[in-house]
Design a protein around this nucleic acid. Structure first.
Length: 469
RNA sequence: CGGGAAGUAGCGCAGCUUGGUUAGCGCGCCUGGUUUGGGACCAGGAGGCCGCGGGUUCAAAUCCCGCCUUCCCGACCA
């Protein structure tokens, strides 16, 4: 009775499994130019859910959306030394346009600190103009040598926030607020990803930042994925772009700026954080389709019941779709499982004879019976239970795959299958180099209680060490 | 960008070593019928610049050169 596998199993070949899921769940295709990505409707719907949840949180944090140009004068990048050094290897530069060689080449934005800095300088005059809290939804280009759908593409979609503040403390507090209230909240409560939160070790910082905050998720193969980053830029960009304000005493002062971003990589993280051998598993709060109503047979009475159940679920706020009974039952539900739809409501003659339907949870395969008039409340319960359970199980997996160790060698050993937690001061520059030589890195540094420190120099910090995507 | 592997129908592959009819197979797709509670079956059918460009040859999917793309492993990154 066992059906042939639709997908390569995770244990057999995890990268292959990932590609199979992306293709068979109809999420994305490779574009014609190396490293580019075509996002298909189902993949884009997942991104739109992330956007909607993220945008609401960003606005709650007080930032406003704006839009800056795709093309940036190359000269802007030269103004901040570390920034230009960090980004030049992956820049796409337009040198020829309008039928002729350009006198000054323009860069296709890999990130927008520079243009936005230029305009912040123009818009900010007084301390009364601060803080200036901006965000933009945009595409960016970073020429990638080793692309992978969603995880690393030469063009990707993201949001990038850019803010300016009167003081270091204000800027640092805002970066922390975004890190926790926007990013980690979205990861935990919507995407059901229990991230390790913390700061990047100095060598992993964003080019031009004085401190980078990160949320690191654990994928089901035990590797880490940096899911979001928030940067304290100090006065580096304010100095390069002359972002100054007059304080209450009438003196000119440099602003402190921040930037923070999250990209379509999150869709890849979602796939790898929850997916199983049957395909994607989408947390209910993330799901473009939360319940699929499957007509076991293509027959009038069944279809009529499907339509009324669909109406009832929609009225209760559940996103639904109906699978009319064409094609074999097994094939149809396999396809819905690959797409990770949280609930499957099976409607067949046997159910109708008893006045019930069968509801199946995607995450654990458990089957439940609901009477026809109680489906909506039952579905809401099951969706909520699944949401909680996905987070809880991911947390258990993460904790089980995180080893407490005391030496760099043990950390390297643990990183072969999962994460290692080790005192930050036990690593040192040489230790970090040894890790890096073996494709292992310090993913983040946190306090002993798991909270995010303000600097890598705080005492008694611990490092989370792993291999990463 | 360095090392390895591979590009033949939408997907997965055979054919290439030893050049020679009309380039095959499975899945998927289309039509009709029977089906439908875990990837259904029968019959009929459509679909190919054999990755691209050049070369060798009477003749190239097959041999040679260049390029592009994909996958794996490294260095870089959201």
């Amino acid at each position: 009775m066992a059906s042939p596998n639709a997908l390569t199993s995770q244990s057999e070949d995890f990268p292959r499994w990932y590609q199979d899921v992306v293709a068979k769940a109809e999420m994305a295709d490779n574009g014609p130019v190396r490293g580019t990505m075509v996002i298909r409707p189902y993949g884009y719907a997942l991104w739109e859910r992330i956007q909607a949840e993220m945008d609401a949180r960003i606005k709650l944090a007080g930032a406003q959306n704006a839009y800056f140009p795709l093309f940036i004068p190359q000269e802007y990048f030269a103004r901040e030394a570390e920034h230009v050094e960090g980004f030049s290897p992956e820049l796409a530069v337009v040198t020829y346009a309008g039928g002729e060689e350009l006198s000054e080449p323009v860069v296709v934005r890999p990130t927008s600190e520079t243009v936005i800095g230029e305009f912040m300088a123009k818009w900010i005059q007084s301390h009364r103009d601060l803080p200036l809290l901006l965000n933009q939804w945009a595409n960016v280009v970073r020429w990638e040598l080793r692309p992978r759908l969603f995880l690393r593409s030469s063009e990707f979609l993201w949001q990038e926030g850019h803010t300016a503040h009167v003081s270091y403390e204000d800027a640092a507090a805002y970066a922390m607020r975004i890190h926790l209230e926007v990013y980690n909240d979205l990861l935990a409560n919507v995407m059901a990803v229990p991230a390790y939160v913390g700061i990047k070790p100095p060598r992993e910082r964003f080019a031009g930042a004085i401190n980078s905050l990160t949320c690191e998720g654990m994928m089901r193969d035990g590797k880490a994925l940096q899911m979001t980053t928030s940067h304290e830029l100090g006065q580096n960009f304010a100095r390069a772009f002359n972002i100054v304000y007059q304080n209450e005493a009438g003196q000119s002062e440099l602003c402190y700026t921040t930037s923070w971003g999250a990209s379509t990589r999150l869709v890849g993280g979602l796939i790898m954080a929850h997916g199983d051998d049957r395909g994607l598993v989408v947390p209910p709060r993330m799901a473009p389709i939360q319940a699929v109503i499957v007509a076991v047979r293509d027959d009038a009475e069944v279809l009529e019941t499907c339509a009324s159940l669909d109406a009832a679920l929609r009225a209760a706020g559940v996103a639904t779709t109906i699978d009319r009974g064409r094609g074999s039952f097994g094939r149809r539900i396999t396809d819905w499982e690959i797409k990770g739809v949280p609930l499957r409501v099976e409607v067949g003659p046997r159910d109708l004879a008893n006045g019930v339907v069968t509801v199946v949870r995607r995450d654990d395969g458990s089957k439940h019976t609901a009477s026809l008039d109680q489906l909506a409340p039952r579905a809401l319960e099951l969706l909520e239970a699944m949401q909680q359970s996905l987070f809880e199980n991911a947390r258990i997996r993460r904790d089980a795959a995180t080893a407490d160790v005391t030496t760099v060698d043990e950390a390297i050993e643990a990183a072969q299958t999962g994460f290692a937690r080790i005192a930050w001061d036990r690593i040192g520059e040489d230790g970090e180099t040894r890790l890096n030589d073996l494709a292992v890195s310090v993913r983040c540094i946190q306090r002993a209680d798991g909270t995010t420190p303000t600097s890598p120099d705080e005492p008694d910090l611990v490092a989370i060490v792993a291999k990463a995507y």
